[in-house]
Design a protein around this nucleic acid. Structure first.
Length: 554
RNA sequence: GCCCCCGUAGCUCAGCGGAUUAGAGCGCUUGUCUUCGGAACAAGAGGUCGCAAGUUCAAAUCUUGCCGGGGGUACCA
């Protein structure tokens, strides 16, 4: 509520000659629509009793057009009750475009080619989509990017098993693999290769050797040798599998950065800074973290190959080159927190402004319960698709309907409603319930609101003068009007969960209204329809920001 | 050992410096309505906000220590 904030600022200036940036919060409904604690802050500064200051300010603002009344409470809070007109005017306010004209790069999901997508990837994808959408709503030009290891030990492991299965470097034999089974086949190869690496000394040596050869293939852009043909073909299979999956969950990326592309810029930056930022130790190039109270990490290993650290350095430089971002967000699991701290510290010494513009968001673990299968064959991993399948199945059971939009909405909402950072438990049955705090509940809420509007005459214009809201209408209008602030807060805190909490509270508020008040056919139909319309719009808007499907019918 | 994250009702989680009574969902108890597609609604039981100090006019929220759980700690990512 910028007008109120401005009015408050100038009142403080006029009365006390001080500049303040007053804090406005949403108190409990009984205490008003907005509340401020400026009087307490000023009290300390001016050496006057806070309540006295509060009284003076409240008095001064009493007559503003948007204010119905003011109250002073407690130690010196000022509570503002908005006029009905101000409330209705604010109904469809949109979040402020604080990122207007800025470019924000959001990196998330980051699956490795040649491996399966697991729950963790699903989680970052969902969180990343929501955060990217929020920046867009705040006016930013957003680039959604995805980083993945198309080179490295896991690739060599997979490739080793691929060669075993093909009986040598025979690319033509890849045609025998059924197209629908490509990703599954590769996943099996990875598992086999991994076992071989850990168990057999010969295999291990071969895999290490293969690793170097694959680096060379990407470095020299070799597309013709037999191994290169196998590599590029299977790599493409993997990317196809990702693309299909993202399409299914409604994610899209502007750019995939394969690790192989980050190698060169990364190596260059690290090598140029040996002696300055990095140092040689035991045949490797390392970053000494101890001085910064961090871990020491290897950037170039004793084989002369870049580790993930160097590729991450290269990636940040590449992102900068491609986008000249004002802000860069990286979303990963929290197991990588300290690792990323080291990378960012190293970047800070190479290109300080890039580190300063970068924010690393970490999330916890998803722990699925009841009905989500774990693949023991793949090493007790929970695949992303297994989570979706479980939700779909739960939806069939509970709501006797098959609707992937509902299952997907259920999973997304269940993941997003938790504050990012801590681990949480995912229960498919609960996620899909039409009662309680769930995605389908909100989807259904929207469908029913639309249904009311469709049955109506379509006339929901407000009278232009002398309208007054009844208490229940007022309460609903107040809640609807919070939307923009909630979005702003969520973007500021990088917490989509705020949006979930709000949407659910909004739907509950509507329920209470709907239970007691007739809409269609009532003498107050037009005003009420106006509220329903705004409510439906806000629900849709909010769900879309979360990248949750918004069905018109269920 | 050192470092990071987490610890709020029986369960799953919000709240992350402000309001007499710390919230929601599920589960439990009682009541209401022949429902604009119950997405029900109303009332109730249930909490030493892990423990202990400190900072503050004000602490679940900030600081420190401890306890419990998870993660990281040189050539994996």
């Amino acid at each position: 509520m910028t007008e109120l904030r401005e009015a408050l600022k100038s009142a403080v200036k006029e009365l006390y000659g001080v500049e303040v940036e007053p804090e406005l919060t949403r108190p409990e409904e009984q205490f008003g629509d907005y509340s401020t604690n400026v009087a307490m802050q000023l009290g300390a500064k001016l050496g006057k009793p806070p309540r006295q200051i509060a009284e003076a300010l409240a008095n001064k603002l009493q007559d503003a057009e948007m204010i119905a009344k003011t109250e002073v409470a407690g130690a010196g809070f000022i509570n503002f009750f908005l006029s009905d007109k101000a409330l209705l005017d604010g109904l469809l306010r949109q979040p402020a475009k604080v990122y207007d004209g800025q470019t924000v790069v959001v990196e998330y999901s980051d699956p490795n080619p040649f491996k399966v997508l697991h729950v963790g990837h699903l989680y970052t994808s969902i969180v990343g989509d929501a955060i990217a959408n929020q920046f867009e709503a705040a006016g930013a030009k957003v680039a959604r990017v995805n980083f993945g290891g198309d080179v490295g030990l896991h690739v060599a492991k997979t490739m080793w098993a691929v060669l075993q299965k093909l009986g040598g470097e025979s690319p033509e034999k890849l045609q025998d693999i059924e197209p629908g089974k490509h990703s599954e086949w590769l996943t099996d190869c990875y598992v086999e290769g991994n076992i071989a690496y850990e168990q057999g000394a010969d295999a291990k040596a071969q895999i290490v050797e293969l690793n170097k050869r694959i680096y060379q293939i990407t470095e020299q852009q070799d597309k013709s040798s037999a191994l290169a043909q196998i590599y590029w073909t299977t790599r493409q299979w993997s990317y196809d599998y990702f693309t299909d999956f993202y399409k299914r969950i409604g994610s899209h990326f502007d750019r995939f950065y394969p690790e192989s592309e980050a190698v060169e810029p990364g190596l260059k930056a690290v090598r140029e800074n040996i002696g300055k930022v990095f140092e040689e130790s035991e045949g490797a190039v390392v970053f000494k973290g101890e001085v910064h109270n961090m871990h020491t990490r290897v950037f170039i290993n004793s084989e002369g190959l870049p580790t993930y650290e160097t590729k991450d350095v290269g990636l940040i430089l590449k992102k900068w080159q491609d986008y000249h971002f004002d802000r860069s967000i990286i979303i990963t699991g929290n197991d990588i927190y300290e690792y990323m701290q080291v990378v960012l510290k190293a970047i800070e010494q190479i290109a300080p402004e890039l580190a300063q513009k970068t924010t690393h968001i970490i999330h916890g673990l998803v722990k699925p319960t009841g009905g989500v299968k774990m693949s023991s064959r793949l090493g007790n991993i929970i695949r992303a698709e297994d989570v979706l399948a479980a939700a779909n199945e739960a939806n069939k059971q509970a709501n006797s309907q098959e609707n992937f939009d509902v299952a997907l909405g259920a999973v997304k909402y269940a993941f997003l409603k938790n504050r990012i950072g801590a681990d949480f438990i995912f229960d498919p049955t609960e996620s899909v319930s039409l009662r309680g705090n769930s995605g389908p509940y909100l989807q259904y809420a929207y469908v029913r609101a639309r249904s009311i509007l469709q049955k109506s005459s379509g006339n929901y214009q407000l009278p232009t003068t002398n309208y007054q809201l009844e208490p229940d209408e007022r309460s609903l209008a107040r809640k609807i009007g919070e939307f923009a602030e909630v979005i702003e807060q969520a973007t500021n805190d990088l917490l989509p969960s705020h949006i979930c909490t709000y949407l659910y509270e909004l739907a509950q508020n509507f329920n209470r209204f709907y239970e007691k008040n007739r809409i269609l056919g009532d003498e107050r139909e037009t005003v009420r329809l106006k509220l329903v319309e705004a409510y439906a719009k806000v629900l849709k808007n909010g769900l879309q920001l979360l990248n949750i499907p918004v069905p018109e019918k269920m």
